[in-house]
């Protein structure tokens, strides 16, 4: 994973609550054995009309939402399945960060492991962001701060380890492999007890 220190981009807003992983990437695209190339199917059934043309009612199809790297989504974003294809699709589509007042556990964990910043903000800040689509934000991972265009700031909570991994681009599999001695001791202890 590449280190991720800060993201500066405009926001696109998808205000709907409970946007589930089937909406983010429908199951019929899960037959891939690769991580790349899912961006064109992100939000597929919402984004395209039956004839394959863009659905004008879908918020991310609006001209002002194009190229926005920060997605502000309704409460409980990413609920549903454990498919890592959901953050893969969003990243491939060009989303670098998702902000919501609640983000489902497995989605959040998957997102952070792929360098997709998943950030929970307070209800009032969420309300503000939902009401102001298209503003440019600067999300600073090291300080845990979101800067607004008018100079205002929100802080956000992030697990210290998750932050460290993003900032340093930590290879978590490598980190686990370093604990091999402790893992072996655990295995021996359990086998002796059995």
């Amino acid at each position: 994973m590449k280190p991720l220190k800060r993201i500066r981009s405009r926001t696109a807003v998808l205000p709907h609550a409970n946007i589930d992983t089937d909406r983010i990437i429908p199951a019929r695209f899960l037959t891939t054995t690769e991580r790349v190339g899912l961006g064109r199917h992100a939000f597929e059934d919402w984004r395209y009309l039956a004839d394959g043309s863009d659905n004008p009612a879908f918020e991310l199809n609006r001209p002002e939402a194009r190229g926005c790297g920060i997605l502000v989504a309704g409460h409980n974003f990413g609920c549903g399945s454990s498919r890592e294809h959901a953050p893969w699709a969003l990243l491939d589509y060009g989303i670098q960060a998702v902000l919501s007042s609640e983000i489902a556990d497995i989605f959040r964990s998957n997102a952070l492991k792929n360098g997709l910043l998943a950030v929970v903000v307070s209800e009032s800040e969420h309300r503000y962001l939902l009401d102001h689509p298209g503003i440019e934000l600067c999300i600073d991972v090291s300080t845990g701060c979101i800067e607004l265009p008018d100079g205002g700031r929100f802080g956000f909570e992030m697990d210290a380890f998750a932050r460290h991994c993003l900032l340093e681009g930590v290879d978590q599999m490598g980190y686990l492999l370093q604990h091999d001695d402790a893992i072996q001791r655990h295995e021996q202890r359990v086998e002796r007890a059995a």
Binding site: S82, D180, E187
Partner: peptide, 16 residues
């Protein structure tokens, strides 16, 4: 778990 974690378990039988 997600696929990255599937890899973690395959390699180390552990998760963070």
């Amino acid at each position: 778990i997600g696929t990255t974690e599937v890899g973690h378990v395959m390699a180390t039988q552990c998760l963070l």
